[in-house]
Design a protein around this nucleic acid. Structure first.
Length: 269
DNA sequence: AGGACGCCCTGTTCGC
DNA sequence: TGCGAACAGGGCGTCC
């Protein structure tokens, strides 16, 4: 079973699944060829430089921060991958066909390949000294699953709207449009409300909802078909109905994205 | 500071 | 049925 066969929006849970996929397939094997077919995705490096850094190296470990995946080589340099909205990984045997839209392809000495594919070319490939350095220089906020309740409250001193705040990677890293809808739905909060206007109980509800949604979707491999029917996600679409009150869901552009929510269950006051 | 908007990209879905 | 417009959205830049 190839867990990468379902197209998904690469937010924190999805990237966590990619990380586990990478760990389960590519670690400790010697890289003997690197091929870049979409050089526009390279940020701050070139196909030649990337090839030099990776050639004859092994990936020894990986890390994830928000929607970014980091792979450590045995010489210390880190490969940085961001999946945009359609990116994914595929590990395949020599002779099998590479996925369409493969932008970066690494061949290992054991005859297997790892492809990073991005049909819409909205991803990013970079090199970094280490993940901390990269996170700092990009200005990313703490990973959503590493934020404790106290930090969450501190970060919430913001005039932003809830939807905009949750998806702002410089505040908290890892949450995108789809999962922010789910988190707000389960916290029963109106996406248009301001963060700083929330009471302590509401803020704690939001915090618990964030953790519940992220950990739960990771535990089901971020597979959309395995998301409980009580979640908003399976109903997020034209004509969708609220799994809680059966009312019609509403779509509204908020923070430059289309937000789905239940106007009855997610009231603002 | 933060929101609105446009842009990048391309496969899919929609309406006429 | 066919075709073009609209849409999907992560991240960035610009403007207000």
């Amino acid at each position: 079973m190839d867990p990468m066969s379902v197209p998904i929006m690469p937010e924190l849970p999805d990237v966590e699944v990619y990380k586990r996929y990478l760990d389960a397939t590519t670690l400790h094997q010697r890289i003997d060829r690197v091929r870049v077919s979409v050089p526009e995705l390279l940020d701050g490096t070139t196909p030649q430089a990337l090839g030099r850094v990776l050639h004859a190296r092994r990936i020894e470990s990986s890390r994830r921060h928000g929607k970014y995946l980091f792979a450590e080589t045995d010489r210390g340099a880190w490969l940085v991958l961001h999946f945009g909205m359609t990116g994914f990984l595929r590990y395949f045997q020599h002779g099998e066909r590479a996925p369409q839209h493969a932008c970066l392809e690494v061949r290992f000495a054991n005859g297997f390949h790892l492809a990073y594919a991005a049909p819409r070319k909205l991803g990013r490939i970079a090199l970094a000294r280490d993940p901390c350095w990269f996170v700092r220089s990009t200005g990313l906020g703490p990973d959503a699953l590493a934020v404790d309740r106290a930090s969450f409250r501190r970060l919430a001193r913001s005039r932003r709207g809830l939807k905009s705040w949750l998806t702002h990677q410089q505040t908290i890293a890892g949450i995108g449009n789809v999962y922010s809808d789910e988190i707000l739905f389960q916290a029963r909060l109106d996406p248009r409300r301001r963060v700083e206007a929330l009471g302590v109980r509401e803020l704690d509800r939001l915090y618990r909802s964030m953790r519940r949604v992220l950990t739960r979707t990771i535990s089901t491999q971020a597979d959309p078909s395995r998301v409980p029917r009580s979640f908003l996600l399976p109903h997020r679409g034209m004509g969708g109905r609220c799994p809680r009150c059966r009312g019609r869901l509403r779509r509204e552009p908020i923070a430059g994205r289309s937000a789905w929510y239940c106007p009855r269950c997610q009231r603002g006051h």
